[in-house]
């Protein structure tokens, strides 16, 4: 199976006005996304996940490394805005309200990508009507303005605008972060259903781990512009090996008081500044396992099988002493028990 998206050795440094130093936003990121697959980039603010997304679409030019879309490079001339790739790559934003033109009717907004592809008026109308029902909105919505819709409905419109060209890859930048839980769950279901129907590849950028657990096939955990751990969602969530992944996952509070997080890895202190990164492993200053080796140089990736990569010398220690338990899975089954049993 050939990859839809192939990112290798991606580096992006942003210059700071009037200074020689740079913001090292992305520091050597490699991953691929296959047809019909969802790969999630998870990480906290400053992890560089959004910058990766923008490089993938060619919205900004990387400082190093390559991005290939179906084997062809994405660069200054071939990107989401160029004629060759227009409509084949799409983007869904975090803030639905801000990404829609408040003075444009929904129908017009959704049809816009088709207009730039030169699709005829009749076919546009046909496709717009198909798409709006596909994302679970009524046809009458086409005549409305963004302000008349709820946040969840607005995000459906954002998704409709992205899928109308039947793209091969959609970059979803925190598509559910601004939504209430119920709207969030609906949008996630919609995205999964659309992927099954259209076999679109998703690059899903999020800090919301419980959503990521549910939508992704594979997960890349990012910290300070590095993918510190990459593997299948089931593996990462049940056997996180990188101390940062462990700390991140144990910080998630699931709505079940009995699923108490255990603090095997307590991440102390603050994230270092991306302007002044430490020499060795970026986590060394916060990690309980760190030793001289970690502080000397960034650990190379270690393949622990099944395409599960970890950038850590001590991942076995981080794994040891913890029962292999996917809290998210357990939460699901307990939720099923409690909520499935209820009746009037």
């Amino acid at each position: 199976m050939s990859a839809v998206l192939e990112v290798s050795g991606l580096v992006k440094h942003f210059p700071i006005a009037g200074q020689r130093a740079v913001v090292q936003a992305v520091n050597g990121v490699s991953f691929s996304v296959a047809r019909g697959e969802t790969v999630s980039l998870v990480g906290e603010s400053g992890s560089g996940k959004t910058t990766v997304g923008r490089c993938v679409l060619g919205l900004i030019t990387p400082s190093g490394g390559t991005v290939h879309f179906h084997g062809a490079p994405i660069d200054k001339r071939h990107n989401i805005r160029s004629k060759t790739l227009r409509g084949r790559l799409q983007l869904v934003f975090q803030e639905p309200a801000e990404s829609l033109d408040p003075r444009m009717r929904i129908g017009h907004t959704i049809a816009e990508p088709l207009r730039s592809l030169g699709v005829s008026q009749a076919e546009r109308q046909q496709r717009v009507r198909e798409t709006i029902t596909r994302v679970g909105l009524r046809e009458s919505t086409l005549e409305q303005y963004p302000a008349e819709l709820s946040a969840g409905q607005q995000q459906r419109v954002g998704i409709a605008r992205a899928i109308i060209t039947e793209p091969e890859l959609i970059v979803l930048d925190e598509p559910t972060s601004a939504l209430d839980p119920t709207a969030r769950a609906e949008i996630i279901d919609l995205l999964i259903r659309l992927q099954q129907e259209l076999e679109t590849a998703y690059l899903f950028i999020s800090h919301d781990l419980s959503t990521v657990r549910y939508v992704s096939h594979r997960v890349a955990v990012m910290y300070l512009g590095m993918i510190v751990e990459l593997g299948s969602a089931a593996e990462i969530f049940s056997h996180p090996r990188h101390p940062y992944s462990v700390g991140l996952l144990s910080s998630v509070l699931l709505p079940n008081p009995r699923l108490k997080r255990e603090l095997t890895v307590d991440l102390k202190g603050e994230i270092p500044s991306p302007i002044d990164l430490p020499k060795g492993c970026f986590l060394a200053g916060r990690c309980p396992f760190a030793d001289e080796r970690c502080r000397a140089a960034m650990p190379p990736p270690d393949d622990v099988g099944g395409g599960h990569l970890v950038h850590c010398y001590h991942h076995r220690e981080a794994l040891r002493g913890r029962e292999a338990l996917d809290y998210f899975d357990q939460f699901q089954s307990e939720a099923e028990q409690v909520l499935g049993a209820g009746r009037r």
């Binding site: 839980p181 969030r184 996630i188 419980s210 709505p255 939720a335 099923e336 909520l339 209820g342």
Partner: peptide, 26 residues
């Protein structure tokens, strides 16, 4: 959390469980 009784509470919890079958039910 053991025994949510209002249908809205149950629906909220189902939304967090990311379980479409449960959500459809509630």
């Amino acid at each position: 959390f053991e025994n949510p009784m209002h249908p809205y509470s149950v629906m909220l919890l189902a939304a967090f469980a990311h379980n479409p079958r449960l959500r459809e039910k509630w």
